[in-house]
Design a binder for these strands. Structure first.
Length: 273
DNA sequence: AGGTCGACCTGGCAGC
DNA sequence: TGCTGCCAGGTCGACC
């Protein structure tokens, strides 16, 4: 599932398209176009436009044009591909952009949960979606002081809190479990119970885990040379996620699955305290 | 306002 | 072999 490292990896790959002009637009499946934006309407707005910038906010990928941004919320199965598509991949295609020089960028979404917005900075939708995001661990605003401050008003268990995009932007179910493991913290521990030392550990681990994941997991998530894009390989980097019943690589205990806020959490009860 | 829960969606897979 | 039904998770709105 695309979380911050995968989207950041994607952003870096797409940055090579900056400065190109859109020659052709082909949108389909109204369901993924949010806010009453019809695929045809988008074609009208985008054609001839210059892609000024490729950016990321949390898990959102943004393509910046003159006054508006194309915001992609990938959710579960959203992904990008370049070049020709297999017929199966083509059946999941939602948007294709053809740039000057002929390179094509496709956006696909198998489960149709992805959303594409056409929004302007400062608009109500922008404020509600982008400005409302918490600090981004790969940017300067994710400081220890800010994390401490944010935790002070919270009472809930740590792991669902880490998944809250208004608390920290970019963590999903996989990295939230992995982060608790790396920091050696029980994911059920409530915010007021965390010591200053634990919060420091958590802060440092968040930055390191995501930076590493951009270089490893993030890069194996997307393979632009393969238009069918396999996604499963990065699982080898997980220590606890989807490893219930296996031995903990740190202490030899047994990785356990529990449910928190309706989502699976994986952790080692022996070394996460 | 913080926290939880269900709905959305569809491919994959366990179980019969 | 073929069918049924559950499961995965990011986000949002409803609810307590």
């Amino acid at each position: 599932m695309p979380e911050l490292p995968e989207v950041e990896s994607l952003r870096r790959r797409l940055a090579s398209l900056e400065g190109r002009c859109v020659r052709d637009v082909d949108g389909r499946d109204e369901m993924v176009f949010a806010g009453g934006l019809a695929p045809e309407g988008l074609e009208e707005r985008l054609a001839g436009g210059r892609l000024e910038r490729v950016d990321r906010r949390g898990k959102y990928l943004l393509l910046g044009f003159a006054s508006h941004w194309l915001l992609f919320s990938l959710r579960m199965t959203g992904r990008f591909a370049c070049g020709p598509l297999s017929s199966e991949a083509d059946s999941h295609r939602k948007l294709s952009l053809t740039f000057d020089g002929g390179s094509r960028l496709h956006f696909l979404s198998v489960r149709r949960l992805s959303r594409i917005h056409w929004i302007q900075p400062g608009s109500p939708t922008w404020k509600r979606k982008v400005d409302a995001l918490g600090p981004d661990p790969l940017r300067g605003d994710f400081t220890l002081v800010r994390l401490q401050k944010q935790l002070s008003g919270r009472r809930g268990p740590l792991k669902p809190l880490l998944m809250n995009q208004k608390f920290v932007a970019g963590l999903g179910n996989i990295y939230a479990s992995e982060l608790c493991f790396r920091a050696g913290v029980d994911p059920r521990r409530r915010a007021p119970e965390l010591t200053g030392r634990t919060v420091r550990t958590l802060h440092g681990c968040t930055v390191r885990l995501l930076r590493e994941a951009v270089l490893t997991g993030g890069s194996s998530f997307l393979d632009f040379r393969n238009p069918d894009g396999r996604t499963g390989r990065y699982q080898r980097y997980h220590h606890v996620y989807d490893r219930a019943g296996e031995r903990c690589v740190r202490c030899g205990g047994t990785v356990t699955r529990i449910e928190q806020a309706g989502r699976s959490t994986f952790y080692c009860p022996d070394c996460q305290t």
